[in-house]
Design a protein around this nucleic acid. Structure first.
Lengths: 169, 169
DNA sequence: CCGATATTGTAAGTACACTGTCAATCTACA
DNA sequence: TGTAGATTGACAGTGTACTTACAATATCGG
């Protein structure tokens, strides 16, 4: 038999996983920006810097796959990082369509210096939980994000980053 | 003694809670929009409709507190809901600054009809986990969001919604 | 070698998410 | 009463996040 429709209450919103994820994302960004205010970097800009540091000469398309970030939006992020002189873009000689991304000297400095603040932010996000619960939550989230990877519009493709070092495919 | 700085790797990004929250939010929105595509409603628009349904005659400021959503952005959301004729705005007689929000007839219909799709979306987000793990994750997330409430720029103030029914404060 | 197809960067359009600022208006205190 | 301070909605500005579309360029099949 079909179940009766539940009454529509705010509680239905507050207990929904989707609401909790949105709320937690708000909180996480807020804490990150606060801890890293001295560096004027957003979480996404930070992730991009790390990826470019790890994969010098990566192009925008691969970068988007490596940080699971929308390709079109990434254009704006790259633009901002370039205008802050944290990265440099050089045209590829092999493929005239491609612009290769490199950390600038000041980009490398900023990345090195921001690490403690980022670390503090990550700690603060989970601080209210008991240590054992932090581990549990992190493990479950990691699992869930991994298993849901294909459900997002921009699946993570970490291995794509290696392609620019000789086409292994 | 001070600890040595860790080497900067993508793994530091992938295992950071902040990254996982962002990723999970991406996935959650993607699933929601997909399940509810027939209704052309975003998660925030849905939350706003529920809150207006639960608190008819609420104003924008209180609505923002009830769904923990930035007040300025909410203006645009309200505008979109109004242009889709899902809600109505009426000037308050007591306070000429205030515009009171009400569900329109079609707004009430849409809200009723979208519920099963929303429910499906919420289930899908946690589907990859074992049932016991879903409960654990939800419990920990609820706890964390609650304890971190003040850390966000827009803390949830569920009780604010009641104020428009006679100033209790 | 050439045309179909794919990739790359870019841009326009929509929607969230936050920061400020501002005028109109309301409230409370002196 | 009258004005200082708070509240309300509106707007401008930045940045994330996604969609679709497009031109330039590469690559592959015939």
């Amino acid at each position: 038999m079909p179940s009766k429709p539940s009454p529509i209450t705010m509680d239905a919103v507050y207990t929904a996983p989707g609401y909790l994820f949105r709320r937690m994302q708000q909180i996480a960004v807020s804490i990150f920006v606060e801890e890293c205010s001295a560096f004027d970097l957003t979480p996404v800009q930070y992730a991009a810097l790390v990826a470019i540091h790890t994969h010098p000469g990566i192009d925008a398309t691969r970068l988007s796959a490596v940080i699971a970030f929308d390709r079109s939006t990434l254009g704006n992020v790259i633009e901002r990082l370039e205008s802050k002189a944290l990265i440099e873009r050089k045209p590829s000689r092999e493929d005239k369509r491609v612009k290769l991304l490199y950390l600038s000297k000041s980009g490398a400095t900023v990345l090195r210096d921001i690490m403690p603040s980022v670390e503090r932010a990550q700690v603060r996000m989970l601080q209210p939980l008991k240590p054992a619960d932090r581990k549990t939550l992190l493990a479950l989230l990691t699992q869930l994000v991994d298993l849901n990877n294909e459900a997002s519009r921009v699946p993570l493709r970490a291995e794509d980053a290696l392609e620019h070092l000789g086409k292994a495919g």
